[in-house]
């Protein structure tokens, strides 16, 4: 299928761009990150053998000597083997292990929250658009306040109100620290309990965008001829709204998913910081604060790959809901 082929090619190009960006950025920046890293490593009692130095140099640049091209290919080779270097802030774990330990927290939290906010936002937007001219229109301006609220500030407010003042939710963390992570009911319910407030923050801040976008497309779709035909056919209002108007209006929201996902990812990194959530966003900040460049770059790559993957899935779904993409490509 031409459509899928083109999309796959595009995401491969985007992946290549991200990987290359990751290679170039440290080389363009002032200072010598390799020396900083090695100094830190020694403080922690790590032995600096030449192979460790070499792997950092491939990642961050040597500061002179060695051709950039051969470094680039060696760097790609390391990536292909999943070797992202050794973390200094969580010495001596390899970066890939540190990332895997925190990745799932974020994927589950952001995944569920984004899905919820998309479904709720689109459903509400369809309803508000359909019932245009009624009191529901007043919802529209209030969503802009939600959309303009900084994620982390909303998180602070929710914590102040629901955790500090009312004591309904825990102040921070991803689970009760007396429990050990595992697949048991006690741990899972603790994780859900701790994740509710961060998820609520993400849903509240991102729902306005979906709602407004869907509402505007709904208003446009409602003046289309096929909606008029559906009304003339004597179909029930709910059917005209869902199968004819909303079914068409949702397409741009899905197509624009990439833009919104960027905002959600950005917002959740900051939100994790407020809640000290054990996810990848908090890890990224720890890495930055500790000059753990290898971990920092590894996390950037993993976040990028996750976002690209999510967008690819959405693009495949788009082809399923819009038959026109399947033929014209």
């Amino acid at each position: 299928m031409a459509y899928y082929g083109r999309k796959l090619l595009f995401y491969l190009a985007a992946l290549w761009a991200a990987v290359t960006l990751n290679f170039i950025i440290p080389r363009l920046m002032p200072g010598n990150p390799v020396d900083i890293l090695l100094a830190k490593l020694q403080q922690r009692g790590g032995s600096v053998d030449p192979s460790v130095r070499r792997s950092y140099e491939l990642l961050l640049g040597t500061g002179g000597g060695g051709s950039a091209v051969s470094e680039y290919f060696a760097y790609l080779g390391n990536l292909a083997r999943g070797d992202l270097g050794i973390s200094v802030s969580v010495f001596p774990s390899p970066v890939s292990e540190v990332i895997m330990a925190s990745l799932w927290w974020t994927v589950v939290l952001v995944g569920i929250a984004t899905l919820l906010s998309f479904l709720l936002g689109v459903a509400l937007g369809a309803l508000v658009g359909w019932r245009r001219g009624t009191w529901l229109d007043n919802l529209v301006p209030s969503t802009t306040v939600l959309a303009a609220v900084p994620y982390f500030w909303l998180a602070l407010l929710l914590v102040a109100l629901l955790s500090s003042a009312l004591g309904w939710f825990p102040l921070l963390g991803g689970y009760d620290v007396v429990l050990s992570p595992g697949w048991n009911a006690e741990f899972l319910s603790s994780a859900i309990y701790h994740g509710t407030l961060p998820a609520l923050t993400i849903v509240l801040s991102s729902i306005g965008g979906w709602l407004l976008g869907m509402r505007n497309m709904m208003v446009s779709a409602m003046s289309e001829d096929y909606v008029l035909t559906a009304r003339a056919k004597g179909l029930r209002g709910s059917r005209v709204m869902i199968r004819y108007a909303a079914r068409n209006a949702v397409l741009p929201s899905v197509a624009g998913f990439a833009i919104s996902l960027g905002f959600v990812v950005a917002g959740s990194i900051v939100t994790e910081q407020v809640f000290s959530y054990p996810g990848i966003g908090s890890r990224l900040l720890q890495a930055v604060q500790n000059n753990d460049y290898a971990l920092m770059q590894g996390i950037f790559l993993v976040i990028t790959i996750a976002v690209l993957g999510a967008n690819l899935v959405v693009d495949v779904m788009y082809a399923l809901i819009d038959p026109r993409t399947r033929v014209s490509g």
């Binding site: 995401y11 991200a18 960006l21 900051v270 900040l285 690209l308």
Partner: peptide, 9 residues
């Protein structure tokens, strides 16, 4: 599609 804030960070 490359997430902005992680890159900025």
């Amino acid at each position: 599609v490359i997430p902005g804030l992680p890159l900025v960070i």
